[in-house]
Amino acid sequence: PSSNSNPSKPLFLCQPFVKAALVKGSFKTIVVLPKHVDVNEWVAINLFDFFHNLNAFYGVISETVTIENNPTMSAGVNFDYTWIDQSRKLVKLPAPTYIDYVMVWVQSLLNDELVFPTKQHNYFQPTFPSSAKHIYKQLFRVFAHLYWAHFTSFLHLSLEGHLNSLFAHFVAFGTEFDLIDQRDVNGSGVGELMKLWKDQGTLDL
């Protein structure tokens, strides 16, 4: 039985979960561009790692993300993300469909030598910063939906500290490299969370 005094408040904004964390200290050490390292290379490896870690967390609870329970990519009260379909129309998709699209799309970009070069004489295209921003935006939306609609699943599996740290790291990184789209933040549950963390000093960038 939950003794939540304000039952409409999402659990991830409540004590003690809002404070749960895997890592202590400032993310600065691992977020800021290391001296002498190429900025594209740094953004690329971080997106690569965020994608794989987020994918692992999504994989844990994906069995509960069904079309029936998640008809939209919800991230807040009356707040759904829309997908741009092939005819450039904004469409609402069930969350599992949306997330699948995102994950498959990001994976294919990561494997694309033109976008994410790995070979000796291949270089980043001038369009890489804009691709990076797109990828970041879609990963952000997946985080936002997971917090909004599936946080209790993470609680059941005692993953909240890990998830919080991963997301806080993700936000710190997005802030440092100006990747965050405020339109996706304002009005979302994680938007509240980011504010709270800022006030608490969890996010000190």
Partner: peptide, 12 residues
């Protein structure tokens, strides 16, 4: 706003 939450991993 402290919440008591009963973890039920067996639901999975």
């Amino acid at each position: 706003d402290y919440v008591y939450f009963k973890r039920e991993p067996q639901l999975f």
